[in-house]
Every structure is written in structure tokens, then in C-alpha cells.
Design a binder for these strands. Sequence first.
DNA 1: CGGATCCAATACCGTTTCGATCTGACCGGG
DNA 2: CCCGGTCAGATCGAAACGGTATTGGATCCG
Lengths: 85, 85
Amino acid sequence: MSLAQIRYFVAVAEEGHVGRAARKLHIAQPPVSRHIRSLEDELGSALFARTPRGMKLLPAGEVFLDHARKILAAVEQATRALRHT
Amino acid sequence: MSLAQIRYFVAVAEEGHVGRAARKLHIAQPPVSRHIRSLEDELGSALFARTPRGMKLLPAGEVFLDHARKILAAVEQATRALRHT
DNA sequence: CGGATCCAATACCGTTTCGATCTGACCGGG
DNA sequence: CCCGGTCAGATCGAAACGGTATTGGATCCG
């Protein structure tokens, strides 16, 4: 699991679409798809339901989204703490 | 910044030596050296004082160590939360 | 002194990972 | 039907990564 994967996951969860998340992240769509897939593989549980209209968070995804945001917040806080030393 | 870098940093901080941290992490010493350096570059402040006896945490390093542990704990908690879904 | 020792840092190389582009598969709306 | 929108797979060039070998610097000891 990488921080990039976590950021991609949060973006997809928030946008509801891999493509829109990709645009927001300024990268192409397939890499986002792959990262989400590999994240699910690593965690051992599906996080999204794939529908023709986009990606819908599953219960496991909701749980992980909460933790993911905490991780990213902790990272941001860490960098901010050193910004003025 | 990557989770691997954060793990390497914590290991070096705990061991006090790049080499020992590397052994603990089951990787070679140079990669650890490089990751620490690039982490410092990215954060814009030195985290360790290089001494002939090893690496000694600077004040900025102590601050970051605290945050680093929180990040890793959050990651562990995230994976644990999905272990049983 | 001077060589041995113990560190981290650098150079270089092969492998792996990553992202971009192109393409395919699937479903819903007109 | 076919068309628009969406995700997934294949392929390729570029970047990152880790390993080995080596260098550089500072201390210790004979």
C-alpha cells in the first residue's frame, strides 16, 4: 500500500468515477483503475461496486475511506509540523 | 514522501545507525541512506546529525518521528479494520 | 604517526514499477 | 439498434528502486 494509492482511492470515493478522479489527480484513468484494483487485492476485500454509471462505495470501502482520510491528514500534519523549523 | 521512507526513517531513528536499520528492514544500507536523504530534501530540513558513531536525531527529527509513528499506526489500523469484513 | 575499523555516502547497473496511449468490453438512453 | 459514457486490459517508454562495489571521513589503537 502506498500513499499514492490511498490518495487515488479517496479521490475515486469522492468523485464516484475513476475517470473524474483521474482528471482531478492530473493523471490518466487506467493507472487509477489499476491502483484501486491492487489496493483491493492487497486488502483482501472489494472497496467499490463497479456499475456502468461509476464506482459505488461498498461497506468495506466506507470503513477504509475513514481510515484513509486519517492517514492523509496525519501526513499533512507531519509535513506542516516541519514547515517552520 | 512514501510509506517506505517513513518506515525507514523510524527504523533509523530507533536503531541510531543506517546499517543496523537496514539489517532490521532486510534491505541493504545504501537504499536506506538515499531514502533518508531524499526525505530530508523533501521536508526541507535535516532530521539527523551524521556522526562517526551513527545518526543522531535532531529536534526536527524528534518532531517528525512522533508524526511518523502516528502515520504508520493509522495505516496499520486501516488494514486491521478491513481484516474482518 | 599510521594502519585498521566503523560509519554513511556515492557510482553504477539490472529490475521493477509507474504512467500514458490505445483498445476492448459492458451497460443504458435515445 | 447504435451511441455515449464508463471501467479494464495490453503495450511501451520513463522513472524509481534495490543491490553490489567503492569511496570518504572520523576515530581508535599499536
